[in-house]
Design a protein around this nucleic acid. Sequence first.
DNA 1: TTCTACATATGCGTTTTACCTATACTGGCC
DNA 2: GGCCAGTATAGGTAAAACGCATATGTAGAA
Lengths: 130, 130
Amino acid sequence: MRHRGHPRSRSRHRIGPGRWHVHARVERFVEPSLLLLLRERPLHGYELLDRLPELGLEGRIDIGNLYRLLRALEEEGLVSSEWSDELPGPAKRTYELTAEGRQVLDTWAEALRRARTTIGTFLDRYEERR
Amino acid sequence: MRHRGHPRSRSRHRIGPGRWHVHARVERFVEPSLLLLLRERPLHGYELLDRLPELGLEGRIDIGNLYRLLRALEEEGLVSSEWSDELPGPAKRTYELTAEGRQVLDTWAEALRRARTTIGTFLDRYEERR
DNA sequence: TTCTACATATGCGTTTTACCTATACTGGCC
DNA sequence: GGCCAGTATAGGTAAAACGCATATGTAGAA
């Protein structure tokens, strides 16, 4: 039996008497972030991991899940990849955004604008009578 | 074996060749929404279901999960409830926000402000060079 | 009576994700 | 050469959140 950290909620856990940590995360936010980074230029997995914090994903990305997601995106045709043997260091798989991936990124941007509006509605009502 | 709808992702699914539906939902957004509604006045489950759309949750709330969540919130001490037998119709359980629930609502509001900023960062970078 | 709306509740399967482990190659150091 | 840290990719497992289905009961309308 392997040791694991004590189980806790991913989005809310008690940090003291009457104190809670809440993470208001957008579901699957890593996916549009990857598509956005790849729209700017092709990158490989480790580079993507380095650049994700620029978009607000701070210390929250698991490298294993990142590669899992990249493979899923490729299966769906949103990105394509090939091995880059010529570069120095270990073999890297370089990912590139496809036309379809570009379309999905646009869809994500619309969805994120709606999400921002929803959050705004909530916060307005919250401020209304605090 | 019961019939079930064909399995699909909750947050992204193909709706045609090259067309996708993406839902940029905030994780557990129903929870702060319930706390916010209950800050205004005590309500029972079905009333909460009716009012959730006001906050942007359109047709997305499952009544079963709503009751499950209310019981979880009560277990954690964020809301309290009692049966209202005096009212006409079926017995209703009326929920009320506790002091601790009020604190968690404040924590949620902070987290949602951060989430809005993160989305803003993404959208700014997206608009930058479309 | 049957049908619909109101009201609360549980069971189950899928998806997403955190945490952990495995594999392998590279380049620098001794 | 051998060792080791860093780079790079990959898979296993379990928990949490959620959608869908189902169950139970009241009350009024058709």
